[in-house]
Amino acid sequence: MSPLGDILTIQLVLATLRLATPIALIALGETFSERAGIINVGVEGTAVLGALVTALVSYFTGSPWIALIAAMVAGGLAGALHAVWCIRFQANHVVSGIGINILVAGLALFITSSVWGWRGTSASAPMISTWYITTAAFLIIFASQVFMFRTKWGLRLRVVGEKPEAADTAGIDVHRTRYIYTILNGVLCGLAGAFFFNSVGRFTSGMVGGRGFIGIAAMVIGNYSPIGGLGAALLFGFIDALQMRLQSYIPSQFSIMLPYLITVIALAFFIRKANVPAALGKHYVKQ
């Protein structure tokens, strides 16, 4: 069989769907919070936290389903922390997100060493099929598209990110809305983290490996819409799947670089600035 035929198989399609899942979830979460006006670059760390918590809970309870819920709760808490920092304490959004990433990176090493005695790696623990998460992700994304552009709550969300003063005048609680969607972002990132754990059945500190940032890139390329983000995530998922196949043909260090390089190139060529929410990253002070 020719190398090309060897690479392009139904397995590749399935791998694309699978690998796109966490990126699409993170892109969706970020779409929600940025539409409300909160940038969260802590999605990377939040996903790491989700994976770590899944490993911990699955290891100690033996139930991967409880672990899945726990990951989403932990992600939500990280989102809440970010929201408090950005809204209540008026931290710069990007800086606060960096804070989450650094803090979680430290915690992941400390906790794995403390619990399992291995730096940055957990023991293996019960897992579920990632297809559950992939299926759920697709359903959530399509529902979110309808929610965001076809319901009054979706409209309220977009107004808060676009014109917070107008939202306030119309009786929408700007801060509460921002808290809700930043927490939702965290929950979705926690779910993405659970995906990472369940794809191998153990936690390793490098397992998210920048997929959080790629999720943000997917959101930008998808122009702040759930479906658009999914489309971009599928592109990155495909690249990821492809690079895994290519590892038998080119040095692995090279193929590992591929998704990151493609992300930069994609950003440079697909960039559209049309839908950036007007009040993104700005603190809203109630008059």
Binding site: L103, G106, F110
Partner: peptide, 8 residues
């Protein structure tokens, strides 16, 4: 790695 936690 407690040092990394402190840093964070």
């Amino acid at each position: 790695d407690i040092a990394a936690v402190i840093q964070g």
